[in-house]
Structure formats: C-alpha cells, structure tokens
Amino acid sequence: MLPALVRKTWRDDRLALIGWAGGVAAFTAIYTSFYSQFQGAAELKQDALPQGMLDFLGIADMLSPAGYLQATIFSLVGPLLVLMCAITLTARTIARPEEDGGMELMLANPVSRATFAWQRVAAAGSALTGIAAIPGILLMIIVPWIGMDIPLSNVAAASAGLVALVWTFAGIAFLVGATTGKRAAVLATTGGLAVATYMANAIGGMLDGWHWVRWLSPFHYFIGTDPLHTGWHPAELLTLVLLGAATTTAGVLVFDRRDIGV
C-alpha cells in the first residue's frame, strides 16, 4: 500500500489535478484535430500572401505535420500550460502548507523530515508526470487517426521531452519551496526562470554570436534538438532528468536542515 501521506497529497490536490488534466487534454485534442481543416486554408493563404510574410508568420512550416505539431503543441502554449501546472502543484508540496500552517500536523506524523519531503515530491511528481504525458498519449491516438504523415517515434520523442522539461522545472520549484517555504517565491522564481530561459533559447537561435546562450536553457534540451524531425536525443533528455533530480535532492537536503514555519 502506498504511504498515507502520498494518498493524502493526491486527495488534497485532486480538484486541481482533474482541472489541469482536462485542460491539457482539451488543448491537445482541439489543436490537433484542426490539422486537416487548417491545411486547406493554409494552402490558400500561401498562394495569396507574399513569401516574406509567410516566413514571418511561420505558416510555410505549418504545412508539414511536424511543423504544425511543433507550432501548436510543443513550442509555446503546450509547455506554458504544463509548466504552469507543474509550478503551482509543486508549490503545494511544502511552500503552501508551510505558509498556511497545515504542514505542522503532517510533519507530526512518525516520518523523518527527508521521508516527508520525498513522499510529497513523489505524490506531486507522479501526478505531474501523468499530466505532462497527456499530450503524448493523445497524439499517439490522434496522429494515426487523422492521418498525419509523421513517424510516431518522433512524436513520442518530443512528448518525452515535454515530460522531462516538467521534471526540470518541478525540481527547481521544489528546491525554491523547500528552501524558502514561501509560495510567492516559488511562483516568481520558477516562473521568471521559465520565461527567461525560454527567451534565451529563442534569442540564441536567432542571433549570430549568441548561440551559446541556448545551452543554458532547458528549452533547448527539450525542443532545440527538433525531435519531431530528428527523433530521440537521449543525452539531452537525460540532462533535463538529471537537472530535475539534482534540484529535488538539493531541496530535500535543505529542508532537512532548516527551521520550519518561522
């Protein structure tokens, strides 16, 4: 049987979990199923608009299945959704209950501090993994169904990257929460870092002489390798997983050493 605290954590978060899962699933399903209608319209636009405008809007690329999935699911809105979910849910592991005082009675149970922290992470992390995996699982069904011409293996690689990206930012959010015990600090720091590293990846790809900046961005390891065209990149995915593991472990160590609820 799973530890009582893990089940309790899921139960307390269940409304948020259901809401996020529903939102991410609807987003994926709606965008992907527009693909066939969108293609016809895009071809008309391609004839009507000058090439420079098409390049600027990225529409030329949206004609290919890989380009379409990249633009809709994997570039901005998809990661934005799952990362918002990851950051807010991770803030609930320690920071929020510490701030509102509910953590004290959970910590009064016979578990060590570190065990408490790991169980909270395990509960939130497994739920987040499930939510971040939803786009990938749905695409495995929708892509063959509507006849998109793209290898499923490539879609799986991009989807795995999305999960790994969530682990990285959940780890960072957990570290901030375990260190400060402040919900606002978790949201501001991790959210700010997500925006900054997203920009770093985008700018690093556009400006000559700034390519190196991309290496500092988790988004580069997620989508910079262009998995929808090039498939699996284990080293990059592993980098994200290790980042998540390292920040989570650091968070547990810090939490084990500090005063609670001061």
Partner: peptide, 13 residues
C-alpha cells in the same frame, strides 16, 4: 501526541 497552538488542518477533508 501533538496539538499545535495555531491549529490548521491540511486539505479539505
């Protein structure tokens, strides 16, 4: 057995 001075319960159970 511990009773906190400022009693806040986790969750909405």
């Amino acid at each position: 057995g511990y009773l906190p001075g400022e009693l806040v319960f986790p969750g909405r159970d």
